[in-house]
Design a protein around this nucleic acid. Structure first.
Length: 327
DNA sequence: AATGCTCGCAACCGCTGCTAA
DNA sequence: TTTAGCAGCGGTTGCGAGCAT
């Protein structure tokens, strides 16, 4: 069967590949023993690192996803040379490393929108996040738990106290509400104050969200991040078939915490892909950029998405190791 | 300056539905 | 049809930063 698959790859009638594949590399799936059915375990927990991510790990993850996308989270850590669980990689990428993330505090309007959406959707954080391009479900969940929930409760309790003040301020439960010690304030008060019908003034963006569960619907025409890599010419179960030619070109992407640079790249890849002149003008935007337009490592057809890496490589003397697991 | 407390956020854990074998 | 892994989701936790004493 494997032979047939390779044959089909070579004959270019597999998976729509248009590349002439001289050599292919099969990433051997470790066939799990002792289990008759099902798949192999997600990861070997004994060798999996946990806890905060280091910069080096971030760099490895970003560089791999930029190059190959993330169609298979389980295989990703092995291929990227990361001692992490795929689940952890996915979380790190989705919640922290994605270049389209919108950092910073939530605006009052965003907070208001979260409150309104929470009324109708409840704790469906991923659905709520889909209304906020660049925000993650985790981020929204955090802001709800740390700010909005408390704020609502305080507001709710103060409303309760106002409503009840003309009835009796001697009622012990209401006194609890007044001093903030009460915990059973009625949610229905809030529902009334911010009913869905009153949300019409809030304009929701129709732009696609990048909440992790929706990235599978991501349109590769819009951006190269997350798109299937053309050098991965096929998948066969747990095995990825890769055109070995590209391995020679592989460099790792240094982690760049400067969001402006990510924005710059983002615009670059979309608008200047077929415009080398526009691309080279971008070079001028980095002061003292030592990279010449004629540097052969800059792939013009890529729209200049990688030129800054060469810049950083030169400037910082970064050592780009090849991923360890390409064999 | 040292200590303790609170808060916010990143990351982990466990569950669920789907799907591959 | 059954079994078990995968991806995604939501709840929870742990740790570091900032603030108060």
């Amino acid at each position: 069967m494997e032979h047939d698959f390779l044959q089909r790859v070579r004959e270019k009638d597999c998976l729509g590949s248009v590349q002439i594949v001289e050599q292919v590399i099969i990433f051997p799936a470790v066939r799990f023993q002792g289990m008759g059915k099902g798949r192999k375990p997600c990861c070997d927990k004994a060798g999996v690192k946990k806890g905060p991510w280091s910069e080096a790990e971030d760099i490895k993850l970003i560089s791999f996803i930029q190059k190959h996308g993330h169609s298979n989270w389980r295989a990703l850590p092995r291929l990227a040379g990361l001692a992490r669980c795929g689940k952890s990689c996915r979380l790190r990428w989705v919640n922290y490393l994605r270049p389209d993330l919108k950092r910073g505090n939530f605006t009052p309007q965003e907070e208001e929108t979260i409150i309104k959406l929470h009324e109708t959707l409840g704790n469906k954080w991923s659905k709520i996040a889909s209304h906020f391009p660049g925000r993650t479900d985790n981020e929204i969940k955090n802001v709800w738990n740390t700010h909005l929930k408390k704020r609502l409760k305080a507001k709710e309790c103060s409303n309760n106290s106002l409503m009840s003040s003309d009835i009796s301020t001697k009622d012990s439960s209401l006194n609890e509400a007044l001093d903030g010690t009460g915990t059973d304030c009625s949610q229905q008060v809030i529902m009334h104050q911010t009913s869905p019908s009153s949300s019409s003034s809030i304009s929701y963006s129709s732009q696609a969200s990048f909440s992790d569960h929706q990235m599978s619907d991501y349109n590769p025409e819009l951006d190269h991040v997350g798109a299937p890599d053309p050098n991965i010419v096929g998948c066969h179960g747990d095995e990825m078939v890769v055109d070995s030619n590209f391995l020679d070109e592989l460099i790792e992407i240094p982690f760049e915490p400067n969001l402006d640079l990510w924005d710059l790249l983002d615009g670059d890849s979309k608008s200047n892909r077929a415009d080398p002149e526009a691309q080279s003008s971008k070079l001028d935007q980095i002061p003292n950029c030592p990279v010449s337009e004629s540097d052969s490592r800059i792939n013009k057809e890529d729209g200049g998405s990688w030129w800054w890496l060469v810049y950083l490589e030169n400037e910082l003397g970064l050592d780009h190791d090849q991923p360890k697991s390409w064999n």
